[in-house]
């Protein structure tokens, strides 16, 4: 299982650096570029840089941030916006539920885990789910922190850069950068899951997501997650049993 391993680190400090080193590369470039797209969206929607930076700092989950800007721009009510962000980001709960237990160490105070949870989003989750099982438990949270905080800072930088670049780059480029996020998430899905259960959940989710959004734009995503996840789990289990 633990193929993406590498040795454990000499100390928790080493784990922080190791996490940052793993983030430095494709994750930093891709998330930075995604947030350049968000920053220019903020500018083009007529909002200030302060708002953009606050949003990236306080939410740091891009699809919800984009939904917020777009819904506010068309005059949606605060209630509608809140519900939309809530439903868009539901994936974060099962992600946190599966990563947080890996940080469970009697020496780690709960509040640290609650703080780390703020930084759990797709990129850092995928990386930590791969790497953490290969590390001694006391190095997992530091590794995750090193990885996530560098990404978080990059996202802030990307937001600012996009804000200043907006208007200077042609519109197709800024639209392309907004589209980079779904493309990136799609390739995360092509990379991440190795078990049949998760693969089945992904395929079902890709189909059900848009289909159920047409049926019920409000609840479509939530229903998709539960149905695709549960059916995928069941189907994957069945196939695993049949193959022995």
């Amino acid at each position: 299982m633990n193929t993406a391993s590498g040795p454990s680190f000499a100390s928790p400090g080493g784990a922080i650096l190791g996490g940052a080193r793993d983030a430095f590369g494709v994750p930093v470039i891709v998330l930075g570029a995604s947030y350049v797209g968000f920053g220019s969206l903020v500018r083009e929607s007529g909002f200030g840089l302060g708002f953009g930076l606050f949003s990236t700092f306080s939410a740091w989950a891009l699809p919800g941030q984009v939904a917020l800007v777009e819904l506010y721009s068309v005059g949606s009510s605060l209630f509608i916006i809140t519900i939309a962000v809530l439903l868009t980001n539901a994936r974060l709960m099962p992600m946190v539920m599966t990563l947080a237990p890996m940080f469970r160490d009697p020496a780690t105070p709960r509040w640290k885990v609650y703080m780390a949870a703020h930084c759990i989003a797709v990129t850092a989750w995928v990386a930590a789910m791969k790497r953490c099982p290969t590390l001694p438990v006391e190095q997992r949270l530091p590794y995750f922190a090193g990885f996530a905080v560098l990404l978080w800072a990059t996202s802030m930088g990307g937001t600012a850069a996009g804000f200043f670049l907006a208007g200077q780059v042609p519109e197709p480029v800024s639209l392309g950068l907004v589209f980079l996020n779904p493309i990136y998430f799609m390739l995360v899905l092509a990379t991440g899951p190795q078990q049949r259960t998760k693969l089945a959940a992904v395929i079902l989710g890709l189909v059900l997501g848009p289909a159920l959004h047409l049926v019920t734009p409000d609840w479509g995503l939530l229903i998709t997650g539960v149905v695709a996840g549960t059916a995928g789990y069941g189907l994957g289990r069945l196939m695993e049993k049949r193959r022995g």
Partner: peptide, 18 residues
């Protein structure tokens, strides 16, 4: 594992929708 499947299902649903 079931919860992880729901995480992937939610992410995939979001990607398909986006």
């Amino acid at each position: 594992e079931w919860v992880a499947c729901i995480a992937y299902g939610l992410l995939a649903g979001l990607v398909g929708r986006m």
